[in-house]
């Protein structure tokens, strides 16, 4: 009898850093009265993401891989979206994990699954899904600092520090003069940049190694373009400016990559195979 071979990422996989941070933070927010979400809701969403990640990869790629991406995406979706009923986690998980297996260019997924799930679910169900769940963050500067340190460790590990740095610097460079034109307190956006939700976004969503550039110069351009797009969307008071900017940047980068072939040199993390069943 033939057994099933499951691929498990090695501990050197940087997503484990993210997961470590995830579980610390999950504990924090579940006990934060303002967050308004329960552990059972998280378990439900996590199960959905794990299920879709594991089986879609098994079916589409013919590989049975431990669904680490599903775990990571579940956390992102859980943090960002308020839902009026957990039933909406189902389309959210389908869209997020499906984008990974069905929307590809040159056999690589082009969108960050969390971002894709958040944007499209909130477009589809405006009365039931709200990304203002973001506002449930505590607004605690010490927590921002903690996330900043964890994020910094991760972007150094995955070699994407230039994306975050470029995003921050461009955001400041664009937002400060822009604030005079749109009659906004110039400190407003600087404060937003220090807010926990944006720190998570800058270090964890932007720097997804699978969807962000590899070479330093492209990373700088990528981070800067997202910052400019975000400012553009903010100026017009659009919802989810950061996530919409990221989706557009991911798409543009994937399209341009056909010519620049930056992704061909993308890093692959070590994995090990474990056999289950069989003789």
């Amino acid at each position: 009898m033939k057994g099933i071979s499951i691929t498990i990422p090695k501990l050197s996989d940087p997503r484990f850093i993210f997961l470590m941070f995830t579980f610390c933070f999950l504990g924090y927010i579940l006990f934060l009265p303002g967050y308004g979400r329960s552990a059972s809701e998280y378990l439900f969403l996590m199960s959905l993401c794990l299920f879709f990640d594991f089986f879609l990869r098994g079916i589409m790629d013919g590989k049975w891989v431990f669904p680490l991406s599903g775990l990571v995406s579940a956390f992102g979706l859980f943090m960002i979206c308020d839902v009026s009923s957990p039933i909406y986690y189902i389309p959210m998980a389908i869209l997020a994990m499906g984008s990974k297996f069905f929307i590809k260019i040159k056999s690589r997924h082009i969108f960050n699954p969390t971002t894709f799930g958040v944007v499209f679910t909130s477009l589809a169900f405006p009365s039931a899904v709200s990304p203002t769940g973001l506002l449930r963050w505590d607004g605690n500067l010490f927590m921002s600092l903690f996330i900043f340190i964890c994020g910094l460790l991760m972007v150094i590990k995955v070699n994407r520090w230039a994306v975050s740095a470029s995003y921050y610097l461009t955001a400041v460079a664009v937002a400060t003069p822009l604030s005079f034109f749109i009659h906004e307190n110039p400190y407003t956006y600087l404060h937003s940049l220090m807010w926990e939700g944006i720190v998570v976004y800058t270090f964890f969503n932007l720097t997804d190694p699978k969807t962000s550039p590899h070479k330093l110069k492209y990373q700088l351009l990528y981070g800067a373009s997202i910052a400019v797009l975000t400012q553009f969307f903010r100026t017009f008071d659009m919802r989810l400016p950061e996530h919409k900017a990221l989706l557009i940047a991911c798409f543009l980068y994937a399209a341009i990559d056909i010519y620049i072939r930056d992704k061909e040199k993308i890093e692959v993390w070590k994995v090990r195979e474990v056999s289950i069943g069989g003789r």
């Binding site: 307190n185 404060h191 944006i198």
Partner: peptide, 25 residues
């Protein structure tokens, strides 16, 4: 002119910033 969408700009901020009404749009 919807205030909900205008909140995008200042709402995600630290407690200290948000608690000062001058910082609200």
């Amino acid at each position: 002119n919807q205030y909900w969408s205008m909140m995008n700009r200042f709402a995600p901020s630290s407690r200290r910033y948000l608690s000062n009404s001058i910082n609200w749009r």
